[in-house]
Amino acid sequence: MGLMQQDDSLPGVSYVMPVLNEVEHVEAAVRSLLAQDYAGEVEVILALGPSIDGTTELIEAMSARDPRIRFLDNPVGSTPAGLNVAIRASVFPVVIRVDAHSVLTPDYTAVAVETLLRTGADNVGGIMLAEGTSAFERAVAFAYGSPVGLGGGSHHVGGEEGPSETAYLGVFQRHRLLEVGLFDEDIKRGQDWELNRRLRQTGGTVWFTPRLTVTYRPRSSLRRLTRQFVATGLWRGELARRFPAQNSVRYFVPPLAVVAMLLGTIAGLVGAITVSLGGAAWPLLGFAVPGLYLLGVIAVALACIPQLGAGAALRLLVVLPCIHIGWGLGFVIGFAKLTRNISYYRGR
């Protein structure tokens, strides 16, 4: 089914969102969907995992107030399973993936559909603009949108419009999702990259445009941030092992840095032992590797004080290592297949 109707009206849009224990954020996310400046028909489909924080009750109340909101059970609870449940239940030719931590700008749908129609792309995505309220969240938001944090991918820092390897969230032609078999439910994180890989392999186009902006609410605690990035690294390592020829070199920078710091620390400790026994001191140079990294983190934090304020900038001393080391360590474990239960890691 084509995107344009026979009377040239705008295509209907189905927003799909997997939700699990998101009582803090989901209402704002859904409200941003219902407030879209878009003339076509819309529906909101929420796939509810087994939440224990009141999320289900909140969504039930929201659905009772607005018939455009539907909810379905996602007993598995994972993101790809929830997305597939919602996509199969959708009725419109355009599917817009939404995250419970995301808030869409009012023109997001209109710009996305216009871009789909203009380019003929299978999937369109834009920029994830992280915004925090607490000092910790502001530090995380800075790391998301900076090359010193997540490496400077276009969906974090922007770039020229055009074909892309992957896309943040995604606005899809529904029939193409069905043709390639929807999301792989065995991949709990990074399933968007893997799906876009299949779209491109079957002749489709994934398109990036900086005109699309999604406000993202970062994790609010160090524990949640650590879990998120260890899980993300685990699955990126798993994907790099499964598809070695299709991964950008930048994915290997954090794990190589983690290995270098680990080896440097071991060498330094060996040096400390040999010096105490009257032996050679040169292995102490190994401490230079983690030392230089820590100096770099401190320099970034100090340089960001005018921009972020002292509270948020100093929290970068914890946030940046959490992101870099958590992601890199997870990658090493996933790539080396050192865990038998990788399917457990969802990054919640």
Rank of each mutant, 00 (worst) to 15 (best):
I45L: 15
D37I: 07
A39W: 11
L46I: 13
S51K: 03
Q36K: 12
L58M: 14
A29I: 08
V30M: 09
E43V: 07
E43N: 12
A35T: 09
Q36Y: 03
Q36P: 01
A29W: 09
V30P: 01
S51F: 04
I52M: 15
A47C: 05
L33Y: 01
Y38T: 07
S51R: 03
I52L: 14
G54D: 10
G40L: 00
I59F: 03
Q36G: 04
G49S: 13
S51E: 03
V30C: 07
V44T: 02
S51Y: 06
E41S: 14
Y38D: 11
T56S: 13
E43F: 10
P50E: 13
T55P: 05
S51A: 11
T56A: 11
L34E: 02
E27T: 08
T56R: 05
Y38C: 03
L58R: 13
G40I: 05
A35F: 05
G49E: 02
I45N: 07
V42A: 14
L48Q: 10
T56I: 03
L48W: 07
D37F: 06
I52C: 12
P50H: 13
L46D: 02
G40S: 09
R31F: 06
T56L: 01
A35Y: 09
A28K: 10
E27N: 12
P50R: 12
D37L: 13
D37R: 15
R31M: 13
L58Y: 08
V44H: 02
A47M: 06
A35L: 10
G49R: 03
E57Y: 07
T55C: 14
A39Q: 15
I52G: 15
G54I: 11
L34V: 04
L48G: 08
D53R: 12
I59Q: 04
I52S: 15
P50T: 11
I45H: 06
E41Q: 15
V42S: 11
L33D: 00
L33A: 01
E41W: 09
A47H: 01
V26E: 03
Y38H: 11
I45S: 06
L34N: 08
V42W: 01
A39Y: 12
L58T: 08
G40F: 00
E57V: 11
A47N: 05
E27W: 01
T55M: 09
